[in-house]
Design a binder for these strands. Structure first.
Lengths: 224, 224
DNA sequence: CGGGTTCTTGACTATCTTCAACGAAAGTGG
DNA sequence: CCACTTTCGTTGAAGATAGTCAAGAACCCG
C-alpha cells in the first residue's frame, strides 16, 4: 500500500489488483506480531493478503529503518529478487494469507489467469512505488501525512455522520518510517490537521476525516 | 539504475539482469533528447537498453519533478501498469534499444528463456526500488550523493591512475531530482567530496573517484 | 568570440530533527 | 482488580540540515 495520490489515469489502471484465483495451497493465518518472512530468507511463497494488515520493512546497519509498504487485503507481498526476500514482513493485524508457489508467478502452474493476475500485481507494484518516490523525494511533511490519510480513507474508510472513519493499525513511528519523517513531525502534522478541522481523532488509532476535499488539496500541495 | 548500496546478498541476487535473448523485433536507435514514451501513453513495447542512457521522470502539477531512475545498458524500461506508461522516458545519451512485445513479458512469445529474463528484470526492479526508498526516506544529502557516485563507479567506472573515472551523462538537476535534493545541495556535496580528497572533477561531467573506500563509507553514513 | 545555459558559492531562511519533558495508554505482576 | 512499569504519543524549545534567493564563474554552442 503506497499513499501517493494517483492521477485519474493511474487510479483507473490500478483497479484490477485483486484476484480470487483458486490455489492448491491452504491459507495461512498469522497473529499480530508474527513474522511472515525476514530479509535474506529464501523465497518459498508469495502471498495475497485476504484479511488483516502486514508491514514490510528494511533496516540500515545503524538502525535507521524504512517501512517499504503496508500490505492490505488484495495486495500481494513477497515478490522475490534473486531468490531471496529483501524486506522483513510482519503482521500488524491478524492476517489470513493465500500463498502461491513461485512457479505460479513464473508460469501460472498451468493456470493462465492466476499467472496474469500475479504478474499484474508485480507490475502495479512497480507503478505504485514510482508514485511513492515522488512522495519521499519531493513532498513536504504536511503533504506526506495528508496523502497518507487520504489514500487510506479512500481505500478503507467507512462513512460516518460528518465524515469518513479509518482505523490505523500502525503506530506513529511506522507512519514516520514509511513517510521518511520522525514520529514528532508526524504527530505535529496530525495535530495541525486536527486544529484546522480537516480531521478529528478518537483515540490514537481512529481518525475521522471531516473534510476529504481539504485533505486531498493538502496532499497535492495546495495550502488550505 | 538505482543507487543505494546493495548488501552482499542483494548484490549477488541482482547479478543475472542482462539478457541477450533473440527477438523478432528490430532494434531502435534514439538520439539524445528524444522521447521513448510519455506518461499516459499506451504501452506497446518494453525495451532492454543495449547502449546509451535514458531517464525516467514523473511530474507533479506544480512542476515538481522526480527522476525515477536512469536506464543504463542491461536495464529494462517500460514495464506497464494497467496498459499505460506511468513515467516519461527520454534519452540522455544516444541509445540503442531492443524492443519486446508485451506478450513476451506475459508468456514469452514461445520463448521461456526470454520470459524468465523479462520477469526477473521486473522483480529485480522492485527490489532495487525498495533499496531506493531507504535512500530517499532516511539518508542525508551527503550520503545520497556519495551513494550515487559510488554505485555508478562500481558499475561503469574505468580504471585510471589514482582512481576510477566516470562520465555523468545527466546534469546536476537530474541528479537532484533523482536524490530528492536541490541542484545547490548536490553541487555543495560534490564540492565537499572534492575538498576532502575523495573525488576529483575534470570538467562538469567527469568524476575521478580517488578514494572508493571513503566514498562507500560516506554512503553508508560513516563520517570520514 | 559572445550569449545563454549550467554550475558553484554565499547569505539567509524555513523546515524538519533533536533533545527533553510530560501525559496517556497499555502491559505486567501481585 | 489495581498499582506499577513501560511504551507510545504529544508538545515545546533549540539546533541542524537542506532550501531559497541572488550573484558570479564555468561551460557550451553557434
Amino acid at each position: 500500500m503506497y499513499v501517493t495520490i494517483f492521477s485519474e489515469r493511474s487510479a483507473k489502471s490500478c483497479a484490477p489488483r485483486v484476484l480470487e484465483a483458486p490455489s492448491k495451497l491452504p491459507p495461512v493465518r498469522l497473529k499480530a506480531g508474527r513474522y511472515l518472512y525476514h530479509e535474506g530468507d529464501e523465497v518459498q511463497r508469495i502471498y495475497r493478503i485476504g484479511s488483516g494488515v502486514v508491514r514490510l520493512t528494511r533496516l540500515l546497519e545503524d538502525g535507521r529503518r524504512q517501512v517499504i509498504s503496508f500490505g492490505y487485503p488484495g495486495d500481494v507481498v513477497g515478490f522475490p529478487a534473486g531468490g531471496v526476500h529483501h524486506t522483513d514482513c510482519d503482521v500488524l493485524v491478524d492476517t489470513k494469507l493465500q500463498p502461491y508457489r513461485l512457479t505460479a508467478l513464473r508460469d501460472g502452474d498451468g493456470d493462465p489467469v492466476l499467472h496474469q493476475a500475479l504478474l499484474s500485481s508485480a507490475l502495479n507494484e512497480i507503478s505504485a512505488m514510482q508514485d511513492h518516490f515522488m512522495m519521499l523525494g519531493r513532498k513536504s511533511a504536511a503533504e506526506r501525512v495528508a496523502s497518507f490519510l487520504f489514500v487510506i480513507t479512500e481505500r478503507f474508510g467507512e462513512d460516518r455522520e460528518g465524515g469518513r472513519q479509518i482505523t490505523l493499525p500502525m503506530c506513529r513511528s511506522d507512519i514516520a518510517d514509511f513517510l521518511g519523517l520522525t514520529t514528532e513531525t508526524v504527530s505535529r502534522s496530525f495535530t495541525a490537521l486536527r486544529k484546522s478541522g480537516v480531521i478529528a481523532l478518537d483515540g490514537i488509532q481512529t481518525v475521522i476525516v471531516l473534510d476529504p476535499k481539504a485533505l486531498q488539496a493538502l496532499s497535492d500541495g495546495y495550502a488550505s
